Computed example of a mutant assay.
Amino acid sequence: MIYLKVKWKHSFSDEPVLLYSELDRERWEVRKVEIFRSGRMGYAGPGGADGGTDLGVEPLPSFEEIAGDPDFEPEIISKAEFDKVWAKATG
């Protein structure tokens, strides 16, 4: 699995500013957490979804492709870091 944190730099009040994704080998999202400017969190995964968050409908682009877009700041994170955010979002 790959664990990715992406900061999305924008001014839309109804879109997340942080995206956490657990990806399989083909880069399909398995679990996802979105954090909004207000602190609200949404999640999606095998057990369901909440907060308007859905898993991607296609594999995520490569790290390099995401990093090449000035609106996004990707970072590879640990499973432990992802699981902490997941627990907070789903708890």
Rank of each mutant, 00 (worst) to 15 (best):
G56P: 00
F36P: 08
F82Y: 04
V17A: 15
K7N: 09
E81N: 04
D83V: 09
P74E: 04
L23G: 03
W8C: 01
W28P: 00
G47H: 08
L23P: 01
A87H: 13
P61N: 15
P61Q: 15
S38L: 01
R40Q: 10
V17E: 15
M1R: 07
M41A: 13
R37E: 06
K32W: 00
V30W: 00
V57T: 12
D50P: 01
D24N: 14
V33W: 01
S13F: 05
A87R: 13
E15W: 10
E22D: 04
K7V: 13
S13A: 11
S38E: 01
K88P: 12
K32F: 00
H10T: 09
L60A: 10
G47L: 11
A89P: 05
R37W: 04
K88Q: 15
K32E: 00
E73P: 05
F36Q: 08
W86K: 00
K32Q: 10
E15R: 13
D54N: 12
P61A: 15
V33L: 06
L55E: 00
P74F: 07
S11W: 08
V57L: 11
V85G: 01
S21G: 12
H10C: 05
I66V: 13
F12M: 10
L23E: 01
A49C: 10
G52V: 11
I66W: 03
L18F: 14
V85C: 08
V6L: 04
L19Q: 02
L55V: 04
V17W: 14
K79P: 09
E26V: 04
E81V: 04
S78G: 09
A89N: 08
D24F: 08
D50I: 03
D83H: 12
E73A: 06
M1D: 12
D83E: 14
I77F: 10
A87W: 05
S62E: 13
Y3N: 02
R40H: 07
E75H: 14
I77Q: 10
F36G: 10
W8I: 03
V33P: 03
H10N: 08
G68E: 12
F12Q: 13
D54R: 07
D50S: 09
D14L: 12
G52M: 10
W28V: 02
I35S: 01
E65A: 15
E29K: 00
Y3L: 07
D69N: 15
E22V: 01
A89G: 12
E34V: 07
D54I: 07
G39E: 02
T53M: 08
R37T: 04
D50Q: 09
I35R: 02
K5R: 12
R27V: 06
S62D: 14
P59K: 03
K32I: 00
A49F: 07
L23T: 10
A49M: 10
W28I: 03
D71L: 05
F63V: 06
R27Q: 09
V33Y: 03
M1I: 04
S13R: 09
I77Y: 06
P74Q: 07
S11L: 13
R27P: 02
E75L: 14
A80W: 03
L4R: 03
G68I: 10
F36S: 06
G47N: 11
I66E: 04
D54G: 06
G91I: 12
D24L: 08
D14T: 14
E15C: 08
G47F: 06
S78W: 06
S11C: 09
R31A: 02
D54E: 12
R31I: 02
F12S: 13
E29S: 00
P61F: 15
A44D: 00
K5V: 04
R40K: 09
G56H: 07
I77V: 14
